[in-house]
């Protein structure tokens, strides 16, 4: 109902192509991103230096890496282990490309480890849900479907954040890098959705 009203407002304001999504977010099959309202994230991003944005990206990758490593280790089927192992490899590459980007654009004295500190920022980003650390701790009690659901929420949150980083950052090279990372997280999301549909 609200989205129909919003669409009517937009139409009235001269927007040419306007749609209200049927069934709202409940009708969306796929991951949804968790986290703070846009404005505070956007505020944080606008106020943040490139170094902080990179640190945020790095810590997100670090969280994902730890999560997938734990998931690979504890997986009960070879298919699950392969999938999570591939995601571990992908996140290692992501971390490396964020590190490389920093070396080129914002070389600093301190390492990302020092900059990010513990507990890492991932916990803060995912304040609407669980932090990766918490999930890893509770992992033994989770069934594979929960693990996939969490992984999808995590990838969607990363996808969401990279889209925003790409829009906010001023350096062209960083924009391109964040866009390409967003694109890859989107692909991970598809693979996780596929695993969820097929079951394993």
């Amino acid at each position: 109902m609200r989205s129909r009203a919003a669409a009517a407002v937009l139409k009235g304001a001269g927007f040419r192509e306007v749609y209200s999504m049927e069934g709202g977010i409940d009708a969306w099959h796929g991951g949804v991103a968790l986290g703070s309202p846009d404005r505070s994230v956007a505020y944080f991003l606008e106020a943040a230096s490139l170094d902080h944005m990179l640190a945020l990206a790095w810590s997100m990758e670090e969280g994902a890496l730890r999560f997938y490593s734990a998931a690979a280790e504890k997986s009960t089927t070879p298919e699950a282990e392969t999938l999570f192992q591939q995601l571990v490899t992908a996140e290692i590459h992501h971390k490396a490309s964020v590190e490389k980007l920093r070396e080129r654009l914002a070389p600093g004295e301190s390492s990302f480890d020092e900059l990010v500190g513990e507990p890492n920022l991932v916990g803060n980003i995912m304040e609407g849900g669980f932090s990766t650390e918490e999930i890893i701790k509770r992992y033994a009690a989770l069934d594979p479907e929960d693990v996939l659901a969490f992984a999808m929420a995590m990838e969607t949150t990363s996808f969401d954040l990279y889209l925003r980083l790409g829009r906010t950052v001023k350096e062209d090279e960083a924009t391109r890098a964040f866009q390409s990372l967003a694109h890859e997280e989107r692909k991970h999301l598809d693979r996780l959705a596929q695993a969820m549909d097929q079951g394993f």
């Binding site: 609200r2 989205s3 009203a5 919003a6 407002v9 937009l10 977010i25 969306w28 991951g31 949804v32 991103a33 968790l34 986290g35 703070s36 309202p37 846009d38 404005r39 304040e127 609407g128 969607t156 949150t157 996808f159 969401d160 889209l163 925003r164 989107r186």
Partner: peptide
Amino acid sequence: IDVRQPREYESGHLAGAELIPVAEL
């Protein structure tokens, strides 16, 4: 555009969506 309230947005939104509660549109 996510036209719901911040609390709803926080508990799950589409990637890349902009939060603009309908009252602020």
